[in-house]
Computed example of a mutant assay.
Amino acid sequence: MVEDVSSGAHEGGVRRADLRRAWHRGLGVLISIVRWFGTAAAALLAVHVVLTIGGANPDNGITQFVAAWAEWLALGFQGLFMPADPELAVLINYGAAALFWLFITSLATRILSSLNRPSF
C-alpha cells in the first residue's frame, strides 16, 4: 500500500493525528495517576503524623493500617533526624517524607507535561 500523504495515513491505515491524540490522551492519564499517587502518599504520611502526635491508640486498626503504609512510603526518612522527643521525630521525619513526595510528584508531572505539549 502506498502512503497517502494528503490524509496523513500510512501503511497500517492509522492516521498520524489519531496516534497523536492517543499519545496525548494516554500521557494525560499517566499524569493524573502520578499526581493522584503522590498526593495520596503525602496525605497518608500527614495523617500518620497527626495520629501519632494526637495520641491515637496504636492498637486501633486504622492507626495500624496508616502506620504500616507510612513506614513503607517514608522511603528511609524514618530515622533521618533524631531529636530527643519521639513525637517531634515523627513530625520532622514523616513530614520531610511528605514534602519529598510532593516535590517528586510536582517534578514528575512537569516532565510528563512537557512531553504532552503539541508539536508543530
Score class of each variant (00 low, 15 high):
His10Glu: 13
Gly13Val: 09
Asp59Trp: 04
Leu88Ile: 10
Val47Gly: 03
Gly38Pro: 08
Gly95Leu: 09
Tyr94Glu: 04
Gly54Lys: 03
Ala68Leu: 08
Tyr94Gly: 02
Leu30Gly: 11
Glu3Tyr: 05
Trp23Pro: 01
Gln64Gly: 12
Pro118Val: 04
Glu71Val: 02
Ala96His: 02
Ile31Phe: 11
Thr39Ala: 14
Gly95Thr: 07
Gly79His: 12
Phe81Ala: 14
Val2Ile: 03
Ala89Asp: 01
Ala108Glu: 04
Ala74Gly: 08
Gln64Lys: 15
Pro86Asn: 04
His24Cys: 03
Ile31Ala: 12
Thr39Val: 14
Val29Ile: 15
Asn116Cys: 06
Leu107Pro: 00
Gly26Phe: 11
Leu112Gly: 08
Asp85Gly: 08
Trp23Phe: 15
Leu44Asn: 14
Ile111Phe: 13
Phe100Asp: 05
Asn60Val: 00
Phe77Asp: 05
Arg20Ala: 07
Ala108Tyr: 03
Arg117Ser: 04
Val66Asp: 01
Glu71Asp: 14
Gln78Phe: 03
Val34Ser: 10
Pro58His: 06
Phe77Val: 05
Ile31Arg: 14
Gln64Tyr: 03
Gln64Arg: 15
Asp59Phe: 09
Ala46Val: 14
Ser32Tyr: 10
Val66Ala: 02
Asn93Val: 03
Phe77Gly: 04
Asp85Cys: 09
Ala108Met: 12
Gly55Ile: 06
Arg25Asn: 11
Val90Asn: 04
Pro83Val: 05
Glu11Cys: 03
Ser106Lys: 03
Ser119Ile: 11
Phe77Trp: 14
Ile33Arg: 10
Met1Thr: 09
Asn93His: 02
Gly38Met: 12
Leu112Ala: 13
Gly61Asp: 06
Ala43Glu: 07
Trp72His: 05
Ala96Gly: 04
Ser6Pro: 00
Asp4Phe: 09
Leu88Asp: 02
Ala68Cys: 00
Ala22Asn: 07
Arg20Gln: 08
Ala97Phe: 08
Pro83Ile: 05
Arg110Asn: 08
Phe103Thr: 07
Val14His: 10
Ser7Lys: 11
Leu102Thr: 06
Asp59Lys: 08
Val2Phe: 01
Pro86Trp: 03
Trp72Val: 12
Arg15Ala: 06
Leu115Arg: 06
Ala98Met: 05
Leu91Asn: 01
Ala98Ser: 10
Leu75Ile: 15
His10Phe: 12
Gly38Arg: 07
Ser113Val: 01
Leu75Lys: 10
Phe81Asn: 07
Val47Lys: 03
Thr109Gln: 12
Ala41Phe: 15
Leu91Arg: 09
Val49Pro: 06
Leu80Thr: 13
Gln78Asp: 14
Pro118Ala: 08
Phe103Asn: 00
Ala98Pro: 04
Trp72Cys: 00
Thr109Leu: 05
Val90Trp: 00
Gly26Pro: 01
Pro58Phe: 07
Ser114Gly: 09
Phe81Trp: 10
Ala9Met: 13
Val5Gly: 01
Ala9Leu: 15
Leu27Thr: 13
Glu71Ile: 00
Ala9Lys: 15
Trp36Lys: 09
Gly54Asp: 04
Gly95Val: 08
Asp59Cys: 00
Val50Tyr: 06
His48Glu: 11
Ser6Trp: 05
Leu107Ala: 07
Trp72Lys: 12
Asn116Ile: 05
Arg20Met: 02
Trp69Asn: 11
Leu73Val: 13
Leu44Pro: 03
Gly79Tyr: 11
Ala43Pro: 03
Ala9Tyr: 13
Leu107Val: 09
Ser6Ala: 13
Ser113Ala: 15
Leu19Lys: 11
Ala74Met: 07
